[in-house]
């Protein structure tokens, strides 16, 4: 049944924007890694999940709360990312691209299996930080403070990443290395180190997203699987090598999903992929893509 209720629609879209913030954060890292390393990092969802698990364990074992975890978890995952790139992914750059995908898929299965063995399949609770409890009245709904924080901080995180890549000298080098690694290397810039750091930064971003998600969804080993598939759809829709495209598409898909939840809930899980199909049919190179 189509049921038009403006308050309901606005409310669901506001909540959809929270999901959209996660989609944007995860697909942004995925897009940057894909752009520079030419690897689809299937393990990206697992790093997102690990961020949430680290937040949980820091709280359980060391009594470190949300704010500490929000800084520590991305750092720890970033370091893990350094090792993963140097020990595993680096060996595949000269091979066909599909091997990068297969390797990171294997890594994802391994880590997910390991956490399931240790923690079991059930979700673990993680509390909302004390200073973000409560809700604000937006007129059409009461928005929990924590969700408002996720949207605002998520967007800040994305824009900061965008700024670093598009507007700073470091970002210029990164973009140049994406276009022509040999040329950049011949200018005396250490491209392999840049690749390693990019991978680390990308997965650290995913981990930050995971920490932010921990109080909203139960922390469990499979929480990364669905989001990484949505992130693939975001990257396909956003278009090749477009940072801003990933951010806008991520947020947009969140809104679309929220809208579907209000109007036709049965379609809410499929509407994202339907959007991808429509974009592919009408504009194969993606909404913001330059040339495939």
């Amino acid at each position: 049944m189509l049921d038009i209720n403006i308050n309901l629609i606005l409310g669901q879209m506001m909540l959809g924007l929270v999901n959209g913030a996660f989609y944007a954060i995860v697909s942004l890292g995925l897009a940057i890694i894909f752009g520079l390393l030419g690897v689809i990092n299937y393990a990206h969802g697992v790093f997102f999940m690990l961020g949430a698990f680290i937040a949980y364990m820091l709280g359980e074992t060391l009594g470190i709360g949300y704010w500490g975890a929000l800084i520590l978890a991305p750092l720890m995952i970033g370091v893990l990312g350094l090792f993963v790139e140097v020990l595993l992914i680096r060996h595949l750059y000269k091979l066909e691209h599909l091997y990068g995908l297969l390797l990171t898929l294997g890594l994802a299965l391994f880590i997910e299996g390991f956490l399931r063995i240790v923690f079991g399949p059930q979700g673990l609770p993680y509390a909302i930080p004390a200073n973000l409890r409560g809700a604000i009245n937006l007129g059409f709904m009461y928005l929990p403070n924590y969700r408002a924080w996720v949207v605002i901080f998520g967007i800040i995180l994305c824009l900061a990443t965008w700024f670093i890549i598009e507007r700073t000298p470091l970002g210029a080098k990164l973009r140049a290395a994406t276009d022509n690694p040999q040329m950049v290397q011949s200018f005396g810039i250490n491209v392999p180190v840049m690749l390693t750091l990019t991978y680390a930064a990308g997965v650290a971003l995913a981990a930050a997203g995971g920490v932010m998600a921990a109080p909203l969804i139960a922390v469990d080993p499979s929480m990364g699987t669905n989001i990484v598939i949505v992130a693939f759809a975001v990257v396909v829709i956003g278009g090749m090598g477009s940072i801003l495209g990933s951010i806008v598409t991520g947020l947009g898909l969140g809104l679309l999903e929220g809208f579907a939840k209000a109007v036709y809930p049965e379609a809410s899980s499929t509407v994202l992929f339907l959007a991808m199909v429509i974009v592919l049919v009408l504009r194969p190179r993606g909404l913001f893509g330059k040339m495939a």
Binding site: F34, G38, I40, H97, L98, L101, N226, I229, F232, A233, V235, V236, M240, S269, T270, F273, L274, M276, V277, L280, V281, P284, R285, A292
Partner: peptide
């Protein structure tokens, strides 16, 4: 739908389509 893009995009598109089929 999927052969509109090649290489790794093809993999991502087919994965997303399969996920959609699963939800349906």
């Amino acid at each position: 739908i999927a052969i509109r893009r090649s290489g790794l995009y093809f993999a991502m598109i087919t994965l997303a389509l399969a996920q959609m089929t699963y939800f349906i």
